[in-house]
Design a protein around this nucleic acid. Structure first.
Lengths: 234, 234
DNA sequence: AAAGGATTGTGAAATATTGCATGGTTTCTT
DNA sequence: AAGAAACCATGCAATATTTCACAATCCTTT
């Protein structure tokens, strides 16, 4: 897998970093079952896909777009992870002791999401252990990523967190040093666990210090080495 | 399951709260395989069971004791979760793309841990889908709990986080309003993501306000209602 | 083109939290 | 029992971060 950089230490982006498909592990009959019991839905930018606490009826497969997976309560929102093309979401609700969604999902950009009937998914997990083993791996991959974010957001201060997320966006989401940011400063605030004003101030500092170039929505990482240092030292 | 209280909202302790055994889902032959490929080890209070980044060779089953599962880097430590009797740990390393442990574990009290060969565990996952389905549920249970802690530590301030953790200890760990705390104030700091001094100050405030009684290591929750309010508005 | 709303930006004040210095306890070791 | 080490406690200064007030800009709709 192509990488922009390879940050030391625990970051927002920590992951095992291994592409895994799951569909191909199904038999033809099982694939057909999925096809028959799923629909692909288009969402516009900013739409809500599902809400924390609602009944979980589907597993989500992101065919196109960029979404956030998040916890919300009152006015607080905590983004657990960003998800891009070809990722499964909602796996946490396959636990049948838990029929409620453990998080909300909404889109940053226009997106296409295939919604797979959760009972079918459970059935396949029970009958196909290669498939279910792969799903365990995917769950672990997600978990590792969330651990990284957990560490970053609780142990680092503003500059470190901002460096973390910029590296993560370049490395993992856009796979390019330069990208068009589909998130507002307020979104970046949710993502880094800081206020909108802090986002603005720190991004400006980074720009003044020559760490990044930035013009409106366009961002380019100029000095990845120093960003990594910032990410490392907090 | 007996509960001391049932906090509203997302807390350090959020979980599906459903007792799940996994051993009984194995066939006799599979049980025997586990027995033959595992050993039970005694750890003293404060000992390290495994270190983040080391090669993962075992799954851990806590037969007795209280341990912390945590991330560490330089002087920062982030406790992902506390684990008590009859819990599996190290499940994140069954992902075979990842042969390194994603966290460290160490004991708060004298503990007995059964160490199960990871290859055997993987083999059973691949061959027994009822078992592997149960393990997925356990992973999801852990994940839900960590989401709760993630939210608590990033979205609430000191008083809310402290209330959260006190309720969690009573509810989930000691299953009693009154308990002997085997953790130092510094440990509590790691657990709540605050400095040792803040822990001391806030626990004293809680005591002065009649929320808790506290004498050295002994803690008793006096006003659970107000603690829940603090946890909620925190 | 004007109006309204969301977004970006800036500075100063307010708040939350930590870190330091220091002293008193308890606990462990010899 | 003495000494050392870890732990608990407290006040104050220092720092990190948010909040608020306000202005400038951009986007969309009329």
């Amino acid at each position: 897998m192509e990488r922009i950089c390879d940050p030391k230490g625990i970051t927002s982006c920590s992951t095992f970093d291994f592409d895994q498909s799951w569909y191909e592990l199904l038999t033809d009959a099982e694939k057909q079952l999925i096809d028959e019991h799923s629909v692909s839905i288009s969402f516009k930018k900013g739409e809500t896909v599902c809400k924390l606490g609602a009944f979980a009826s589907h597993i989500f497969f992101l065919e196109e777009g960029l979404v956030k997976v998040y916890l919300e309560e009152k006015n607080n929102i905590l983004i657990l992870m960003l998800s891009t093309k070809n990722n499964l979401m909602g796996l946490s609700s396959i636990y049948d002791g838990n029929n409620k969604l453990p998080y909300s999902i909404s889109t940053y950009t226009d997106s296409k999401i295939r919604m797979i009937d959760i009972e079918i998914f459970r059935q396949l997990l029970k009958q196909n252990s290669a498939f279910s083993y792969r799903i365990i791996n995917l769950l672990n991959e997600n978990t590792a990523q969330i651990y990284g974010r957990f560490f970053s957001l609780t142990q680092k201060q503003l500059h470190g967190r901002m460096a973390d997320i910029l590296l993560c966006l370049a490395n993992r989401i856009f796979k390019n040093k330069s990208f068009d940011l589909p998130l507002s400063r307020a979104d970046m605030g949710d993502l880094t666990g800081m206020s909108t004003e802090s986002v603005i101030r720190i991004m400006k500092e980074f720009k003044d210090d020559g760490l990044i170039e930035m013009c409106c929505k366009k961002v380019e990482l100029l000095d990845i080495g120093r960003l990594e240092k910032l990410s490392e030292f907090g």
